[in-house]
C-alpha cells in the first residue's frame, strides 16, 4: 500500500523539481513588474525583430524540410540501391552531432576563409552572418524530423496500389499525388510542425553562423541569451514565455493530430 503512493510521489518530485519549478520561475519573473512591463519587453523593436526573424526562418525551414524530407523518405522506402544504408545513417547524423559543432562546420565550409566561401564572395553572394546561414544551420539540425515521421507511414502503404497505378500507365507524378500523398500528408504536416517547434529554440548552431547583428540576424533564443547576460531578467523571461508557449502548443497540436488522424487510418487498414 505504501509503495503505491510512494513511487508516484517520487516521480512527481523529480519532474516537479527539475522541470516544473524552473519553468514556473520563468513565468513568474516575466510578470514580476506587472503585465505592462511584460508587454513593453516584447514590444521593444529588438525583441520584435528577433521574434520575426525566428518565426520566418523556422517557417521556411519547415516548408523546405517537408519537401526534402518526403523525398528522402520515399527514396529510403522504395529504392534498394547500393548505399541506401549509408543514406539512412547519414540522415540521423544531425541528431548525433552537437549543434555548436554544426555551426562551426558551416563556418568552415562557407566562411570567407574557405574556398567555397571565397568563390561565393567573388560573385557577390554572402552566406555567413546572414539569414541564409541561419536557414542552412536549421536545415541541418532538423533534417531527420520529417524523414522519421514519414518513413514508417510510407513503409505501411501497399506497394500494390502504387504498382497498379504505374502499370496502368500513370505518370509517377500522378501516382504520387493521387495514391501516396493523401496517405502520408498527416505525417508530413506533423513532421513540419515539429521541425518548426525545434527551429524556434535552436541556439548552438545559430549563434556562431548568424553574426547576431541586432534587428537583422539576431534570433529570439540569442536575444534571450543577450538579455540574461546583461541582467535584463524581465526581457529574457518575457521572450522565453512566448517561445515556450508557442513550441508547447505546437507539440500539443501534433500530439492530438497524431492521435486523431494517424491512429484510425493505420488501424483501419
Amino acid at each position: 500500500m505504501t509503495r503505491r503512493s510512494l513511487l508516484p510521489l517520487l516521480a512527481a518530485t523529480f519532474l516537479g523539481g527539475f522541470v516544473a519549478l524552473p519553468v514556473v520561475a520563468v513565468l513568474v519573473t516575466a510578470f514580476s513588474d506587472g503585465p505592462a512591463a511584460f508587454m513593453a519587453a516584447l514590444a521593444a523593436p529588438a525583441a520584435r525583430n528577433a521574434f520575426r526573424l525566428t518565426v520566418a526562418t523556422g517557417a521556411l525551414v519547415a516548408v523546405v524540410n517537408a519537401v526534402a524530407g518526403t523525398l528522402l523518405a520515399w527514396v529510403l522506402a522504395r529504392s534498394r540501391c547500393f548505399g541506401r544504408g549509408l543514406l539512412d545513417a547519414l540522415i540521423d547524423l544531425p541528431f548525433a552531432i552537437p549543434t555548436l559543432v554544426t555551426g562551426l562546420m558551416l563556418v568552415i565550409l562557407v566562411g570567407p576563409q574557405s574556398d567555397a566561401g571565397a568563390w561565393l564572395e567573388a560573385r557577390g553572394v554572402r552566406v555567413l552572418f546572414t539569414w541564409v546561414a541561419i536557414v542552412i544551420a536549421l536545415l541541418f539540425v532538423t533534417l531527420p524530423i520529417v524523414v522519421r515521421a514519414v518513413l514508417p507511414v510510407l513503409e505501411e502503404i501497399d506497394l500494390d496500389q502504387e504498382d497498379a497505378a504505374a502499370t496502368l500507365g500513370a505518370w509517377p507524378a500522378f501516382t504520387f499525388r493521387r495514391v501516396i500523398l493523401p496517405a502520408i500528408l498527416p505525417a508530413v504536416l506533423q513532421g513540419a510542425l515539429l521541425t518548426f517547434a525545434r527551429a524556434l529554440g535552436e541556439f548552438g548552431a545559430v549563434v556562431i553562423v548568424a553574426g547576431n547583428i541586432p534587428h537583422r540576424t539576431l534570433t529570439a533564443p540569442v536575444h534571450v541569451f543577450g538579455a540574461v547576460e546583461s541582467g535584463d531578467l524581465v526581457g529574457a523571461s518575457a521572450m522565453s514565455v512566448v517561445l515556450i508557449a508557442l513550441s508547447m502548443s505546437l507539440m500539443l497540436i501534433t500530439d492530438r493530430y497524431r492521435r486523431a488522424w494517424l491512429a484510425p487510418r493505420t488501424e483501419g487498414r
Binding site: 541569451f225 531578467l233 523571461s237 505546437l250
Partner: peptide, 24 residues
C-alpha cells in the same frame, strides 16, 4: 499533468532552460 511534463524539456530552448535554472 505528470505525463505532459515529460516532454517539456524538448519543447524549451536550452538557453531558456539555463536561464530558468539561474532563476531558481
Amino acid at each position: 499533468l505528470l505525463n505532459s511534463l515529460v516532454d517539456l524539456p524538448f519543447a524549451i530552448s536550452p538557453v531558456i532552460i539555463g536561464f530558468a535554472l539561474l532563476l531558481v
